[in-house]
Computed example of a mutant assay.
Amino acid sequence: MMTKKYLLCYPVLLIGLLLWAEGTAYSQESPTLSKGQKIYVPAYSHIYTGNRQIPSFLTVTLSIRNTDIFHAIEIVSVDYHDTKGALIKRYLPSPVFLKALESVRYVVDYDDKAGGSGANFIVEWRSESLVNPPIMETIMIGSRSSFTSRGQAIRTAD
């Protein structure tokens, strides 16, 4: 039979757990707003399988998603680089505007093997207002595998 002493401990424990959970798992930080960034997005035109390092070729799709619900953003440049960092292709002859919540994609075909296993996109975007930064990710799909990579900000707007 439980004593009154133990019964009094349960409410205290419950309150402590709720306060701890609110401070960790249930809290959300405010998003960091920005007026622009350069983003590094990993891409893989092929990956290697097995001990013999046989390449598996992949189609790469770069997805850029404006996550701001009120403001447009301007995509200034989308540049595709190979494993050694050399520029392979500039995708934008002029800037592209994405309205609130709009998305755009750029594709590296399955047959395009120039990028290699260490390829990447450098994407520059900007906005006149402070906005939620866009999500940029690549989706790689091949006959043997598929996976995604998320972009990483490497520079903020000046």
Rank of each mutant, 00 (worst) to 15 (best):
I73S: 02
G50R: 06
Y106W: 15
L13V: 15
N132V: 15
N120E: 10
Y80P: 02
Y91H: 08
K5L: 08
F147E: 03
Y10H: 05
A86F: 14
S63V: 12
S143P: 02
T32H: 08
A100C: 08
L19I: 12
I54M: 05
S94H: 11
S143F: 00
L98A: 03
E22A: 14
I139C: 06
S30L: 11
G116K: 04
G85W: 03
S129R: 12
R144P: 01
H81W: 02
I141V: 15
L8I: 09
I135L: 09
V76I: 13
Q37Y: 03
A157S: 12
I73E: 03
N132F: 11
L8P: 01
A21T: 10
Y44F: 13
H46Q: 14
P11W: 06
G116H: 05
I141F: 01
F97D: 05
V41T: 13
G142N: 00
I88Y: 01
D111C: 02
F147L: 00
E74Y: 08
G116V: 04
H46R: 08
T24S: 09
S45F: 02
R65I: 14
A72F: 06
F121C: 07
V12N: 07
Q28H: 11
L58R: 02
I73V: 10
V41Q: 02
K4E: 15
A72Y: 06
F121Q: 05
Y106R: 07
S117F: 14
I64D: 01
F121G: 04
V96I: 12
T61L: 06
T24G: 00
A86R: 12
T148K: 11
I54W: 00
T49K: 12
W125K: 04
Y6D: 14
S63W: 13
I54Q: 07
N66H: 06
T59R: 09
T61Y: 00
L18I: 13
L130I: 03
T148H: 08
I15A: 13
L98M: 07
R65D: 10
S117H: 13
V123E: 02
A43P: 02
Q37S: 12
A72C: 00
Y48E: 08
S129K: 15
L13S: 09
S129W: 09
K99E: 14
M1V: 11
H71R: 07
M140C: 09
N51H: 09
T59S: 12
I47T: 15
Y40V: 03
T138C: 15
A153V: 15
T61R: 07
S45Q: 10
W20I: 11
S129T: 10
I135Y: 06
W20P: 03
A153C: 03
S129V: 06
T3S: 11
P95L: 05
A114Y: 03
V60F: 01
R90H: 13
T49N: 07
G36F: 03
E137P: 00
P42S: 04
M140E: 14
R144M: 05
Q152P: 01
L101V: 07
I54T: 13
V78H: 01
G85H: 04
G36D: 03
L87W: 00
N120V: 07
N120Q: 12
Q53K: 09
P133I: 00
K5H: 08
D111S: 14
S56F: 00
K5M: 07
S45G: 06
P133W: 01
E29C: 00
T67A: 13
V76Q: 09
E124Y: 05
L33N: 08
M136I: 06
V41N: 03
K99S: 15
